[in-house]
Nucleic acid binder design. Structure first.
Length: 281
RNA sequence: GGCCGGGUGGCAGAGUGGCUAUGCAGCGGACUGCAAAUCCGCGUACGUCGGUUCAAUUCCGGCCUCGGCCU
């Protein structure tokens, strides 16, 4: 018996994934399932380039703008949601089309993750607080005393992974290095059809710049200002959406709009480059 | 024509007689639960021709060039 199919459309921002997904979904009776870590939040539809109403009315779109931005999503949570949507599509006799540029999510969907328990929020918050207080170097040294294996493979600059390593040890009593020797679990069994969109770099850069300018023209500044007015914790993932900070500063008059756009465009280009690196691996 | 001040890697911008900042952009890479995050790596650049020196981007001179002032 052959496995049911899943079509994956991967590519950097502004590579035209969404439009292609829409066309394929129409042609192949598909369901478009989001694999972008920012588009999952119910926030900033313009700035995160969520598919417009028109597209969603044409073809079913799942996992777009459906999570509370006040609560961080995670790779594991997304995989769980995505698996459910894929199963639902199969049950409906439709082709699941997974679209997105978040490499970690896509990889986790295919390979699964080591079965590490969820870390209590208190431990996470406390860990980040300590890290912020004592600084990277001291934190790295402290990690080295408790978890030499992880400290050895993380540079002191890598605050995010150091925090993750620390909280896993604190919450489970086992090193993350140890956990990761446990085989990954939960990888989706399917017949994978993968399409990677990798436009020439020069064209990609131009597309990134053009798209950000279009977002601003579509009201991204107002959108950013309104979202920031909610006063959410700046450490939340949704608060790190590209351009949010810059556009917010522009809205408050702290930064010239042209300058804000230029900075955000540069950040977008850098992001696209990281995505390409991931896709090429 | 004269005087003065500049000419540094794609851009910005320090600096030094030998050890050749830095930032941004760019390029390559990593990636197991906040990933649009978080990191790692990569550039003998010093206008030009000569001189001084063991050694010149750095000192001296000519030339070119940019800017300012003067006639």
């Amino acid at each position: 018996m052959s496995l049911p199919p899943v079509l994956v459309l991967a590519g950097p921002t502004a590579s035209g994934k969404s439009a292609l997904a829409l066309a394929l979904a129409q042609a192949e009776n598909g369901v478009v399932i989001n694999a972008d870590s920012m588009q999952v939040y119910d926030a900033l539809p313009i700035l995160t380039a969520q598919p417009p109403e028109a597209a969603r009315e044409t073809v079913p779109h799942r996992l777009y703008g459906c999570l509370d931005p006040a609560r961080p999503c995670s790779a594991a949570q997304w995989v769980e949601l995505a698996r459910a949507e894929i199963a639902a599509a199969w049950a409906d006799g439709r082709l699941p089309i997974v679209v997105g540029g978040t490499g970690l999510y896509l990889e986790s969907l295919r390979q699964g993750l080591s079965p590490i328990p969820e870390i209590p929020a208190e431990i996470r918050d406390q860990t980040r607080a300590v890290l912020a207080e004592i600084g990277n170097e001291a934190f790295h040294a402290r990690l080295g005393q408790r978890d030499p294996a992880m400290a050895a493979r993380l540079p002191p600059g890598d605050s995010q992974r150091m925090a993750r390593a620390w909280e896993v040890l604190a919450a489970t009593g086992r090193s993350l290095a140890d956990w990761q020797t446990v085989p990954r679990q939960g990888g989706l069994a399917a017949r994978w059809l993968t399409l990677a969109l990798l436009p020439p770099r020069e064209a990609l850069r131009a597309a990134c710049d053009g798209r950000f300018a279009a977002m601003v023209a579509a009201g991204a500044v107002e959108e950013a200002a309104a979202f920031l007015a909610r006063g959410l914790d700046p450490a939340l993932p949704a608060m790190k959406v590209l351009g949010l900070r810059e556009l917010g500063a522009a809205a408050r008059g702290e930064l010239a709009l042209a300058e804000a756009v230029a900075v955000a465009q540069a950040a977008t280009r850098a992001y696209a480059k990281r995505q390409v690196t991931w896709l090429r691996h």
